[in-house]
Simulated assay, not measured.
Amino acid sequence: MSRLKGSADLERRLLQIPNEVLTELRPALINGAHDIADAMEMLVPERDGDLLGSIAVTGPNETTPPYSAGGSVTLKANQAAVTVGNTDVRHGHLQEFGTAHHEAQPFMRPAFRLKKAKVMRRIASAVTKAIKKAGGQ
């Protein structure tokens, strides 16, 4: 079976695109997570600051803090996370959703909704830039 002239080069370049996209995507993911974390910090109900101090950003290929929602998880190369909670603070979900004795005071979901469009535009722009760069444009 014969290959088209240049197809090996094209195939090699196409296989490189995912790595180049991930390289360009990493800063966009981290900046987006920080945008959401900043909004959460502005919205978190403050009494003694423990919940505010437990908001953390985890970048691609890093591990989330223990006691964050879902426990400690190692993220993939195309993921970033904002978590709430640490070894001393484990009540973020109770604050967000409320309990039988405490009315909900959401701050996580509203922060995500406020920043989602901006973060998604930043990520799409990074992907587009990486693909154009990989294609030599």
Rank of each mutant, 00 (worst) to 15 (best):
Lys116Ser: 08
Glu11Gln: 05
Asp48Tyr: 11
Arg90Cys: 05
Arg47Lys: 14
Gln79Ser: 06
Gly135Ser: 09
Gly49His: 10
Lys129Arg: 14
Ala104Met: 00
Arg122Leu: 13
Arg13Asn: 02
Glu24Thr: 11
Arg47Gln: 11
Pro66Ser: 10
Leu4Glu: 10
Leu43Cys: 00
Ala8Ile: 10
Lys118Gly: 14
Arg47Trp: 08
Gln95Tyr: 08
Leu14Asp: 08
Asp48Cys: 01
Glu24Ile: 00
Ile17Lys: 09
Ala126Gly: 06
Ala111Met: 01
Val119Arg: 05
Ile17Glu: 08
Gln79Lys: 06
Asp38Thr: 12
Gly59Thr: 03
Pro27Arg: 08
Lys132Asp: 15
Glu103Cys: 00
Glu11Phe: 02
Val127Tyr: 13
Leu43Arg: 08
Gly70Ala: 05
Glu103Leu: 01
Lys133Ala: 04
Val127Lys: 12
Pro45Gln: 08
Ile131Met: 14
Lys116Val: 03
Met40Tyr: 02
Met1Gly: 09
Thr128His: 15
Gly53His: 10
Thr99Ile: 07
Pro45Cys: 07
Ala39Val: 00
Gly71Asn: 06
Lys76Phe: 06
Ala8Pro: 07
Gly6Asp: 05
Ile123Gln: 09
Ile123Pro: 08
Glu96Ser: 02
Ala130Lys: 09
Asn31Arg: 10
Pro65Cys: 00
Met40Gln: 06
Thr128Trp: 13
Glu20Ile: 15
Asp9Gln: 15
Ser54Ile: 14
Pro65Lys: 11
Gly53Val: 07
Asn61Glu: 05
Asn78Thr: 10
Thr63Ser: 03
Ser68Val: 09
Gly49Met: 05
Ser7Pro: 01
Lys132Arg: 15
Met40Val: 03
Lys5Arg: 14
Ser72Asn: 04
Glu20Phe: 00
Arg122His: 13
Glu41Arg: 14
His101Glu: 12
Ala39Pro: 01
Ala100Pro: 00
Leu94Ile: 13
Glu11His: 04
Phe107Gln: 02
Thr128Cys: 10
Arg3Cys: 04
Pro66Cys: 00
